[in-house]
């Protein structure tokens, strides 16, 4: 087993990124408000829409290529590498929720990462969440039908389409909040 590629690099790179991020957030910003700790509905839906379009493009490009590279990446790779990716995601979520946004886990999961300040904001988030979940279900159903009837040749395209759906749902959620006048929030 190549220790450098399978254990050292997958652990050192995420830890390095996280460490660099902490240095930026904690020391350079000194409690200032910025994009790193502020939710802005407008920029969030625009970014999510942009990412969704990019992944839709990837899906279309990889549609006809019989490309299965993404699936073997997880199937044939080292378990250590997969575990370190999972560890990175968990540690990153902990840092983002507890240290950067300074939220409780309850707020992070139940209020989709937002902290409503009163009943009106709670209603706004509830409506946007309902819309977000409904659109996710519809798009996943659409993807299921496509996969069922078109016999998708590319597994990479399937994975990319799921990522596209996640970004489009986030865009719909934030767009709904933006339209209802939800304020910028740290």
């Amino acid at each position: 087993m190549d220790i450098l590629t399978n254990i050292v690099l997958p652990l050192i790179i995420p830890i390095g990124i996280i460490f660099f991020w902490i240095v930026i957030v904690r020391n350079w910003t000194k409690g200032k408000r910025g994009w790193w700790n502020t939710y802005r509905a407008r920029s969030d839906w625009q970014t999510s829409l942009g990412m969704g379009v990019i992944f839709l493009f990837f899906s279309i490009v990889s549609w006809f290529e019989s490309n299965t590279s993404l699936v073997p990446f997880f199937q044939a790779g080292s378990r250590w590498r997969d575990a370190s990716i999972l560890l990175f995601i968990i540690v990153w979520q902990w840092i983002y929720v507890k240290k950067i946004r300074r939220m409780s886990w309850r707020s992070a999961f139940l209020n989709v990462g937002l902290q409503p300040r009163d009943e009106r904001e709670t209603m706004m988030i509830l409506k946007a969440t309902q819309l977000g979940y409904a659109s996710t279900v519809l798009m996943l159903l659409g993807l299921y039908l496509i996969a069922l009837f078109l016999n998708m040749p590319s597994k990479s395209s399937f994975v990319f389409l799921i990522v596209t759906i996640v970004f489009f749902s986030k865009a719909i959620f934030s767009y709904s909040l933006d339209r209802s006048g939800y304020p910028d929030q740290s």
Binding site: R117, D118, R120, G181
Partner: peptide, 17 residues
């Protein structure tokens, strides 16, 4: 115990408390 935006919305009859 609410935000000013909520009072504005109530006054404009956009939000029913």
């Amino acid at each position: 115990g609410v935000t000013r935006q909520t009072i504005i919305s109530i006054e404009k009859n956009e939000y029913v408390p």
